[in-house]
Every structure is written in structure tokens, then in C-alpha cells.
Amino acid sequence: MKWYGLPVLGLIIGTWATLRFSLLAPEPPVNPNDLCEIFREHTVWYDYAKDSQERWGTPIATQMAFVYYESSFRSHARPPRTRLWGFIPWTRPTTAYGYAQALDPAWGEYLAANGDGLFTVRTDMEYALDFVGWYNHLSHRQLGIPFHSPRLLYLAYHEGRGGYARKTFARKPSITALASRVQSRAFRYDNQLKSCEKEFQCWRWYQFWPFCG
């Protein structure tokens, strides 16, 4: 009886994981240009970003600007496949995956440093934002990049800390332009958040002033 129960248990766990991380993945926000509207639609994302900020130091608005440009808030985003002979779907150019487009090696380092949890996945906004915060924390600590400089943080995020130290971005005008757009969006998101953040600090039934500010 115990042996026969194992496949059933595996089926239940597999079904739950599929629902948890795929079928129930939230849709991208309707208005991705307004951080207040993003958090009104996905209020728990504010909690995740706030937790990451408190743990690692990257401002909420900067985290969300990173995700906007990395995945457009699509949970299972991947780089498009290359085409063999112009029409056969082939390999992807990188292993980037999820909200934060974390590469396999960087994600492996994150798991090693923060606990390799079974359900710590790149398609979950909670861990994607924590990854962004963790990566920027290392860029801040190792490269001296201030948390209030989204442009420089993004250059290190995109090029890797080694690439940033070698200034590989100096030969990539498209990347430097993208980093400037990330910074502009981060500052715009930050101004928007200042007008609405109190909404998300006391939104659960068990949260009440002054314990949720």
C-alpha cells in the first residue's frame, strides 16, 4: 500500500508545483508605467520589494525598474531562441530566466549563498526581487556603487561585476543607453511611490497603525 501511494504523492506534489509556479503566475500589470498602479494590482509585490530593500539596501523603485526592463513583469520570460538556417527554432543565446532574467551561474551563486530551497525559483517575484537586491548588494560592497545610482547598478547587473570593473559597457552604447532608461524609470517610480506608499503599509486585516508603517 505504501509503495502504491508514492506515485500518487508524486502526482499531487507535481500538480501543486505546476499550479503554484506556472498556471497561477500573475499576469503582467495592466499599467506598468505607474508603480502605484502596479502595487494596487499586485499588492504583495510591494511586500516583497520592501523585504528585499530592508535586507539588501536597493530601493523599491530601483528593483521594480530592473524587472520592468529585464522581463516586462513576465514571470517565465526567456530570451528568444535563435534560428537555425533562418527558420528552425534553435538554442537560446543565454540562460536568463524569470522576472529578473537571472543567468544560471548567478542564480546558482544566489542559492548557495541564501539557501537552496526547493521552491526558490526565478519565476516567483519574491525571489526575483530578493535576487536583484542581493546582486546589487554585492555590487555595492565590491565595486563601491551607491544604492542611489540605478544606472551604475544596472551596468554591473547587465555586464557582471567583472565586466563592470573592466568597463566593457564603454564599448556598448546600447547598454549605456538602456542603463540611463533604467535610472529614469527608477526615479519616476520613486516619485510615484512617495504619493501612494502608505496604501501598501496597512493593507492586510491584521495590520494597523502604528505597527505597519
Rank of each mutant, 00 (worst) to 15 (best):
Y110A: 04
D104V: 06
A100Y: 00
P80W: 09
A165F: 11
R181L: 07
W209S: 10
F21Q: 04
S52D: 01
T18R: 12
Q207G: 03
S184T: 13
A106P: 00
R188M: 08
A96S: 05
R83F: 09
G133W: 00
A100C: 02
T123S: 10
T18S: 13
L143H: 11
W85G: 12
M125T: 08
Q63R: 02
A61H: 07
G213M: 12
A177H: 08
G163P: 07
G133N: 06
R122Y: 00
C202K: 04
A165P: 07
W205G: 10
A102Y: 02
A25N: 12
P210V: 07
A186S: 08
A77C: 05
Y189C: 06
Q53P: 03
I145E: 05
N33W: 08
A102I: 00
Y48V: 04
H76D: 14
Y206I: 04
S139Q: 12
T62P: 07
E27K: 15
F147S: 07
D190W: 00
E109A: 12
E41P: 05
L193N: 02
R122M: 03
Y97S: 06
N31S: 07
H42L: 03
V44M: 08
P146T: 10
P29W: 01
R141I: 14
P105Y: 02
T82Q: 15
P59A: 04
T120F: 03
Y127H: 09
I38K: 01
Y189S: 03
G162D: 04
E199A: 06
A77D: 06
D190V: 03
R81M: 13
D47V: 04
V30M: 09
H42S: 02
Q192M: 08
V8F: 10
Y99G: 02
G162C: 07
E109K: 13
P28F: 01
P80Y: 05
